[in-house]
Design a protein around this nucleic acid. Sequence first.
RNA 1: GGCCCGUUGGUCAAGCGGUUAAGACUCCGCCCUCUCACGGCGGCAUCACCAGUUCGAGUCUGGUACGGGUCACCA
Length: 483
Amino acid sequence: MSETIVTRFAPSPTGFMHIGNLRTALYSYLLSKSRGGKFILRIEDTDQGRLVEGAADVIYKTLEMTGIDYDEGPGVGGEHGPYIQSERLPIYKEYAEKLVKSGHAYYCFCTQERLESLKNDIGIGGYDGHCRDLPAEEVERNLAAGMPYVIRQKMPLTGTTSYVDEVYGEVSIDNSELRDQIMIKADGFPTYNFCHVVDDHLMGVTHVVRGNEYLTSTPKYCLLYDAFGWERPHYVHLPLLMGRDADGNVSKLSKRHGAVSFQDLVADGYLPEAIVNYIALLGWAPKDTQEFFTMDELKAAFSMDGLSKSPAVFDYEKLRWFNAEYIKKLPEEEYNAKALPILQELCPDYINTEKLAGLLHSRISAFCDIREQVGFVKERLPMESDLYTNKKNKTTPELCKAILADCLPLLEAAQTWDNDTLFGILKQYAADTERKAGAVMWAVRIAIARQAVTPGGATELMEVFGREETLGRMRFALEELQK
RNA sequence: GGCCCGUUGGUCAAGCGGUUAAGACUCCGCCCUCUCACGGCGGCAUCACCAGUUCGAGUCUGGUACGGGUCACCA
């Protein structure tokens, strides 16, 4: 029989979608979809202290924007609901008590103070098992007296627990390394360590896809499956996403490395398709050298044997390259829909923003680049002394002054104001005066842009500025040179 | 510190015992060109180290070093 594969993405609603989490969601989704399986979304909101208003919406929105759709989950329903853990509390309680009855878990009445002092005692890393073998009568008495309690998983004291990870192979941990972790907290909420196992089993999850940080705690979860008599799922641990620190070292990608949430990147002008394409290749590689993938192509190409074992450093440069490629492929209308509003806000009215947007299309890697590219159109920049001097075109301030003086009347007389006409005028002038076209263009471009590097050539910029602004800038530059 | 995992160029990576060690980003040249960008062409690696196994090792084994993760009433 061919088992239907079921994977899930189980994020905690923190208010933002970390790019590493998004990649986990993507791989989990792709694993399932590459094999015609099901994909479930489950919200893990069992930490009452970290509740953030509207945080789940960020998750829904991100998955929608990236095209990661789920067969079951909040909003879409499914036969295993509810899909929000805070709505499943009675289930966890029931299963935790089952484990207490079967001797795999126990009530613990230790106070926070006692636990604190334990931490300070050398030689005891964590809980000491104080309540592990409390007499039944004492437990009953404490419960009846309403003493606060937690429920802990009873770990075996000896032996080892191992499992076979789909990417890392066999992982084996001494049971003595395992602590009696809390399953149900004092507030009645379950911990991740416990409820994700219950949910994954109840929801029929066959492959648990998650970050490598769970590699060494997975034996604890295996023990839980064993205690319940449930079949263990397949584990697919993913290499971590790293960020480059200021000191050159790397560590788990986090906010200090820059924009690391999906929404931050989108706000900076990165396209969801580009982000997905880039992170798909961070920790996974296709069998051939294809590098651009649509979601459908990813579904077709994804396979677990392409997963890497070693951590991957998130490289903004490469993301920028991907994004630039996606922007270049954007149809005119879609590109303008994003670029024009930014330009209109930045530029004076006389600027031909549509033309400017066109010049920028192949020159930006993210839409946030627009701002720094158009600084010179907003205002006349202070002139740097040596800009008129250009070795390749053999220009000098003196030559530029002459060119500007000559060209000003020619341009004032221009019948129409578009690139072709303007280019023709200047080209003709160059031919007539036996000057290099490059020198003429250089003089004019520097005069109006007042900076060395510009998006577009002299006549293109003239079109962007329009007749009045261009001539105004040229006259100003000429006067400046004549001083 | 204990335990676990990893290590092919600055980065992402292919490679599965015999290859001139793919490809991409970055960087650097050259070409195109009214600057830049786009586009085109080209360049940049003794596979962390040391032992072993083998006729032969980036590929297998062991050790060392380095890096990372994990040891919560967070997930």
